[in-house]
Write a protein that binds this DNA or RNA. Structure first.
Length: 194
DNA sequence: CCCTGATTCGC
DNA sequence: GCGAATCAGG
């Protein structure tokens, strides 16, 4: 696959929408996330700029100490290149419905509105759990690994007992769905005082 | 381990 | 220009 105009457009759009490189690659098909990232860089829109420069403002002059001897990184001489104003400020950064050709999930630079669900377990979370439990891998205790959801389901005293086993949420011991109900912000036993 | 983007460099 | 391999971080 090559970078046709269309594909580049999709790339730009998704990237500006905050989609991850892998998501974009998946969407485009025929390319890896590396390809996407590479293209992004070549297009000069590495930084999801456009209007919100306040985001990931990583140090561009990221110099790597010569910690790698025979490495394949012969410290390029172009250490810090005066990356002037990115022409990225091309189009209107905001108010641009664009073509909602597909699913536009993430708003944009906006992280996400404050999560209202602070108390009690949202019915959605519970529903999500019962849903995922159907597709749970139902692992036994011995099959659990560091990256399998350790949420127990059923009664340990019966045979209807197993662990979720779905991919964990990274770091956490449970999958996303279970993390949702596992880490109750608080309460729930408030009015449950026996 | 999963994921993310960033960078280099042979092609 | 392209993107795999690699790096670096979460």
């Amino acid at each position: 696959m090559s970078w046709t105009d269309e594909r580049v457009e999709t790339l730009k759009k998704m990237w500006s929408e905050g989609q991850s490189a892998s998501q974009i690659a998946k969407e485009l098909g025929g390319v890896t996330r590396n390809a996407v990232i590479g293209k992004v860089h070549r297009l000069g829109l590495s930084n999801r700029a456009g209007g919100s420069p306040a985001t990931t403002a990583k140090a561009p002059a990221k110099e790597k100490p010569a910690a790698k001897p025979a490495a394949k990184k012969p410290a390029t001489a172009k250490a810090a290149e005066p990356k002037a104003e990115p022409a990225a400020a091309e189009a209107a950064p905001a108010a641009k419905p664009v073509t909602p050709a597909r699913k536009q999930i993430i708003p944009a630079g906006q992280p996400l509105p404050p999560q209202p669900s602070a108390n009690e377990i949202s019915p959605e979370a519970l529903k999500k759990v019962s849903e995922i439990e159907k597709s749970a891998k139902k692992l036994s205790l011995l099959e659990l690994t560091e990256r399998t959801c350790k949420w127990p389901v059923g009664d340990p005293a019966t045979e209807d007992f197993w662990f979720c086993g779905l991919p964990v949420q990274q770091g956490k011991p449970y999958c996303e769905a279970h993390v949702g109900v596992a880490f109750q912000p608080m309460s729930s036993r408030r009015d449950r005082k026996r």
